[in-house]
């Protein structure tokens, strides 16, 4: 007699489906980044994804475990890393970053589900620590289809809006971007390949919320806290909300299941703390951005949050 434990039916949504839906949700922002900054961005993303997948495959072979590249998690890590590169980095930069993300941040911690820190962000943090100049050189968007778009020369170096605001002040920023909010919303500014179009990131994020892939509490708590914090400190909340990597981070990185809390209340705490850290870093620390470090720092607190924030027992 068979002894199979119930239930005998299962939902169709499996790990691979979830991962590929996240990848799909990122594609509009990725294509916009290529449109905005040139063909070179496409190759950066390609190298980043390929190295991530190949690293995963090699490690699967070395560990003599099931090949996991089809589950989409390595490709997603590669894509996220590619999207937070400056459009003019040399190709070995995303390659090294993806290797670090998959080999060290993911597999050295035990593989899928066991890493404490978001692999893509660890890859990026490593690159910034090792090659800060390369990682912090920015360019302005180039006209689609122009020689500069095709061959990536003649690009005008230009700081990101957050960088201009921080170093040169708000007046210079408005001088350069008279319609700063709409420029940021539609992505017509300097920045990383994937972060510039707040609009398309929002579309992707909302798609993931509607399909119940991500918990809305994290982006809402995170973005809401940044907006409230900027407002409370007398800054332009809309600018701090749309500029930099906040949407990319809040919708696609802080929501990473593996590195965010298990409970809904825990996620609120996580998201609000990410927001507080981001606003503090942006306004009071030496660097213009703060999303990456905020999420990485909060990743470290996830085990603690999960230890103490638990659902109230039924019937009590």
């Amino acid at each position: 007699m068979q002894k199979v434990t119930s239930p005998h039916i299962h939902a169709r949504r499996k790990t691979a489906i979830i991962m590929w839906i996240v990848v799909l949700s990122l594609l509009p922002a990725a294509f916009f980044g290529i449109y905005n900054f040139g063909l070179n961005s496409f190759f950066i993303i390609l190298v980043s994804v390929l190295v991530a997948v190949i690293t995963e495959l090699v490690i699967n072979k070395l560990k003599k475990e099931r090949i996991t590249i089809a589950d989409g998690s390595a490709a997603l890590t590669g894509l996220l890393l590619g999207l937070c590169m400056s459009p003019r980095v040399p190709m070995w930069i995303p390659a090294v970053g993806s290797f670090v993300a998959i080999a060290i941040a993911k597999h050295a911690f035990g593989g899928l589900g066991h890493n404490i820190f978001n692999p893509a962000l660890v890859g990026r943090a490593f690159l910034i620590a090792a090659w800060p100049i390369i990682m912090n050189s920015w360019v302005a968007p180039v006209p689609f289809g122009s020689p500069a778009w095709l061959h990536s020369y003649d690009a005008v170096t230009s700081a990101t809006p957050l960088g201009i605001e921080k170093i040169q002040g708000h007046a210079v920023l408005l001088d350069k971007y008279p319609m700063i909010h709409s420029s940021l919303f539609f992505g017509n500014t300097g920045g990383t390949i994937g972060e510039v179009s707040a609009f398309l990131l929002l579309i992707g994020g909302l798609f993931m919320i509607i399909t119940e892939i991500i918990d809305w509490r994290i982006p809402l708590g995170y973005i809401g806290t940044v907006a409230l914090g900027a407002f409370a400190l007398g800054k332009d909340p809309l600018f701090y909300l749309l500029a930099g990597g906040l949407f990319l981070g809040a919708f696609f990185m802080a929501t990473d299941y593996v590195t965010s809390p298990l409970t809904r209340n825990g996620r609120w705490i996580f998201a609000v703390c990410c927001g507080i850290l981001t606003i503090v870093m942006r306004l009071f620390a030496g660097m213009p951005e703060g999303v990456m470090y905020s999420i990485l720092i909060m990743n470290a607190f996830v085990p603690l949050i999960d230890r103490f924030i638990r659902p109230k027992r039924f019937g009590t």
Partner: peptide, 22 residues
Amino acid sequence: EIEEQPCIRCAECINVCPMKLM
């Protein structure tokens, strides 16, 4: 035919538990 894979901590099990368990 289902094969057990690593938990990705999606927390769906926690969300659907009618007894608020983990």
